[in-house]
């Protein structure tokens, strides 16, 4: 081990001269954080894989186990499609849900390992810091949904609206993920605990998925589930994505015929998700700014 020496130690004057900075810009701060969270995602492929594995298991098991039975129920409502085609949009939404949970976990980890405070003490713009983190997570979700779509097509699903439709499904998945990203970050700040955040967010995942139009058409489900499904964001996300997948209006909970055709199924879902994103995003932003404020609470 080399012992510290005084070689190369600059004098005071030299150090002062060195104080020039390139300064911080909003975009620069955004980019720095976007890069850091992407780097962490690549460093931790386990998280990437795990948040994909469960939806993939669902996709394969559901189509193999329930494919024949469920296919009949699906065809009563929407004739002429296989269960794979019906299920893939739901799995895309499930991926968005599962991946969004990791956003809050990332925040809790940052709080626990001191990086949260470390970032607060830098001159970076705090809005840019959190936007960069969220953008990295949304970017990852988009890629994961893309993987699911490719896998679905390989298993026999058909994206009727083609490549443009696939991009649209990814966009809906991202839009859907934002409210859950906000929710998991809010949980993270409130609990400041990794286990609580994971359990809290996971606890919601299955009821949300099963009490919706994700796995079976609403008509085939009991009345109380249909009632719940009308209030469930998953229904809106899945129906919008499914409308694009099938290139026809299959939105089950809002009936509009303003645009004619597929858009009648897609746009109401998008409107509901946007509203939800804004409300929950607002809550998360409020909690984040309170947690990072220097005012004594």
């Amino acid at each position: 081990m080399s012992s510290p020496d005084s070689e190369g130690v600059a004098g005071t004057a030299a150090m002062r001269d060195d104080l020039q900075r390139s300064g911080n810009t909003f975009l620069g701060d955004f980019w720095v954080n976007f890069k850091r969270w992407n780097l962490k995602a690549v460093r931790n492929p386990f998280v990437l894989v795990v948040s994909l594995v469960q939806p993939i298991i669902f996709l394969v098991l559901f189509t193999e186990v329930f494919g024949n039975v469920a296919g009949g129920a699906v065809n009563q409502g929407i004739p002429g499609i296989n269960y794979e085609t019906f299920l893939v949009p739901a799995i895309a939404i499930q991926v968005a849900l599962a991946a969004a949970i990791t956003s809050g976990i990332g925040l809790v980890n940052d709080i626990e390992n001191g990086m949260f405070e470390k970032v607060l003490v830098t001159p970076m713009n705090r809005t840019a810091v959190f936007l960069g983190k969220t953008a990295a997570e949304v970017f990852r979700i988009a890629i994961q949904i893309g993987i699911i779509l490719v896998l679905g097509v390989l298993l026999g699903a058909e994206i009727v609206s083609g490549f443009a439709g696939a991009i649209g499904i990814i966009a809906i998945g991202v839009l859907f993920s934002l409210w859950f990203v906000a929710f998991s970050n809010a949980l993270a700040i409130l609990t400041r605990d990794q286990e609580s955040t994971i359990i809290g967010a996971n606890l919601l995942q299955f009821p949300l998925l099963f009490l919706s139009s994700a796995f079976l058409p609403l008509d085939a489900l009991p009345g109380w589930i249909q009632t719940f499904a009308r209030l469930n964001p998953v229904t809106y996300g899945v129906d919008a994505a499914r409308s694009l997948m099938l290139d026809r209006d299959v939105m089950t909970v809002i009936e509009v015929s303003w645009f004619g055709g597929t858009l009648d199924g897609v746009l109401p879902g998008i409107a509901v998700l946007l509203g939800l994103d804004i409300v929950l995003g607002g809550v998360a932003v409020y909690l984040l700014s309170r947690a990072s404020s220097s005012d004594v609470k």
């Binding site: 020039q20 390139s22 620069g28 720095v32 850091r36 830098t122 001159p123 970076m124």
Partner: peptide, 11 residues
């Protein structure tokens, strides 16, 4: 390097 970027050290 992250700290360099966070503090605006010239590229």
């Amino acid at each position: 390097r992250f700290a360099c970027e966070a503090y605006g050290v010239p590229r």
